[in-house]
Amino acid sequence: MTLMPPLSTTDTPLLQVDGLTKRYGSRIGCLDVSFDLFPGEVLGIVGESGSGKSTLLSCLAGHLTPDLGRVAYDGRDTLTMAETERRRLSRTDWAYVHQNPRDGLRMGVSAGGNVGERLMAVGARHYGGIRDKASDWLGRVEIAADRIDDRPTAFSGGMQQRLQIARNLVTGPRLVFMDEPTGGLDVSVQARLLDLLRGLVRDLGLSVIIVTHDLAVVRLLAHRLMVMKGGRVVEQGLTDQVLDDPQHAYTQLLVSSVLQV
């Protein structure tokens, strides 16, 4: 029915989330969220602004400390592990793609430098090797080789986003967090980015958690879907099933509110 990246059949979850709760004073960020994510699986999280999806993503990625609950990555509890170890994970095994590429890039450093810097952070030292790998990755995200020395400030929004993806994936992460990666881009640029992401997910076997409010994006990218409202997960399931046969009142409202083109 839809094109889907393939899914590996490993039976051990890469990420296990159990009862995750974050409050801001008396206000709920996210409440009692539980799910498993398997290798090669793309999980979409949708919901309107303030539904808690970004809070959840930040808690998972270690940018926020949840009040309650457990997060296990590859069997290790990421909430109780030492800060140094979590930092190491976030450099080697994890990647985080921000909605605004400016938050994920160093704007004063060349495109090649943005990618190479990540390699150096995980121990690469050979200049030629770093430059080769950086230019290979720029090619994979369809940035022309002659732009390697240009700064991201000279790039279009779509190019900046692709550069951010290259910078994040160059170190070979297994789990990628994405916060509205196609937000703010023209539809034509969005399509190109979606195609790129799908290919990378398939070829690299990435696990991805993607937060978005764009139902068309999750339909094409996510295997599974979680719908959030008021900090709670109100419905989850197979993406096309949740979108085509939504069970919860809020999901029905969300799906029926999409403008048809």
Binding site: T2, L3, P6, L7, A191, D195, L220, H223, L238
Partner: peptide, 30 residues
């Protein structure tokens, strides 16, 4: 959901009346 995804990949094909694809992907790759 995981089991259904595996079923759709290996065992169960579906030709619907509508084609839903990522724009710009060549027909051959689709």
């Amino acid at each position: 959901p995981r089991q259904i995804i595996a079923l759709r990949r290996d065992t169960l094909g579906y030709v619907s009346q509508f084609l839903r694809v990522v724009p710009r992907v060549p027909t051959l790759d689709v």
